[in-house]
């Protein structure tokens, strides 16, 4: 464990266990995720990265067979305690998915969707849309066609639109689940730049199967293997002198 953080801790996970029916998918995960930094989660596919990520905004509530034990504190509040409203939680902890999933509506309506429902900026919805698209590094490309369908955008643009849509509801934390795996290298580059920009204001957790990406953009990296968090440390540490043999094997490509 990397000890205490300069910016403080945003998320504290203690002894988290998760089952899908009989499948024990996460074992005793404990991890402190730092504020205003990028934390990458790496590991072979099927090791539980997405599952862990989805515990942080309780998206796993949607999976009927799923059972969870342990503690997840965000801002010192246990998000699994009874008095927490999941809907409010998800507003604070946004999520960007593997496959870009814009709604079948105009670009403007995609961004305005969240703020409108949450009753934010009733008068200045256009301002909110513009600000979000600017923060999502998409404004320059779409400012002249906000009314056209979001489905007409390229994959990379769609993914930035999804990021902007998440920003528009003003979360504290943004979870990314392999946001670039469906994109070309140029779009990937743009999104990586954007993430580096976003970490100034948001706490970011990103799942990636691309180790270079983790090395390029993250401050901290956790390595998952078959439901265990094998190692968690500063990214340089993980990549230069990992403490565990399994981590080293995975990073140097000597894995399976």
């Amino acid at each position: 464990m990397p000890g205490t953080y300069d910016n403080g801790t945003e998320i504290e996970v203690t002894d988290l266990n998760l089952w899908y029916g009989d499948n024990h998918a996460l074992h005793d995960i404990s991890i402190d995720i730092p504020k205003n930094s990028v934390t990458a989660l790496i590991g072979p596919s099927g090791c539980g990265k997405s599952t862990f990520l989805r515990c942080l905004n309780r998206m796993n509530d949607l999976v009927k067979s799923c059972r969870i034990e342990g503690k997840v504190l965000i801002d010192n509040q246990d998000i699994y305690s009874k008095d927490v409203d999941v809907v409010d939680l998800r507003k604070r902890v946004g999520m960007v998915f593997q496959k870009p999933n814009p709604f079948p509506m105009s670009i403007h309506d995609n961004i305005a969707y969240g703020p409108r429902i949450h009753g934010m900026g009733k008068k200045n919805i256009n301002g909110i849309v513009e600000e979000a698209l600017k923060s999502g590094a998409l404004w320059g490309e779409v400012s002249d066609r906000l009314g056209s369908s979001a489905l007409d955008l390229s994959g990379g643009q769609q993914q930035r639109l999804c990021i902007a849509r998440t920003l528009a509801v003003r979360p504290e934390v943004i979870l990314f689940d392999e946001p670039c795996s469906a994109l070309d290298p140029i779009s990937t580059g743009k999104i990586e730049e954007l993430i580096l920009e976003l970490k100034k204001k948001y706490t970011i957790v990103i799942v990636t199967h691309n180790m270079q990406q983790a090395a390029r953009i993250s401050d901290y990296t956790g390595f998952f293997l078959t439901g265990d968090l094998v190692e968690f440390d500063r990214t340089e540490q993980i990549f230069e002198s990992p403490g565990e043999k399994a981590t080293e094997d995975y990073i140097t490509g000597r894995f399976g």
């Binding site: 905004n57 998206m59 949607l62 809907v87 409010d88 939680l89 998800r90 507003k91 604070r92 946004g94 999520m95 998915f97 496959k99 999933n101 814009p102 709604f103 079948p104 969707y113 969240g114 429902i117 949450h118 999804c162 849509r165 998440t166 509801v169």
Partner: peptide, 11 residues
């Protein structure tokens, strides 16, 4: 995906 995207926005 549409449902997940919307729920993840706190809707």
């Amino acid at each position: 995906e549409y449902r997940e995207a919307s729920l993840a926005l706190g809707v």
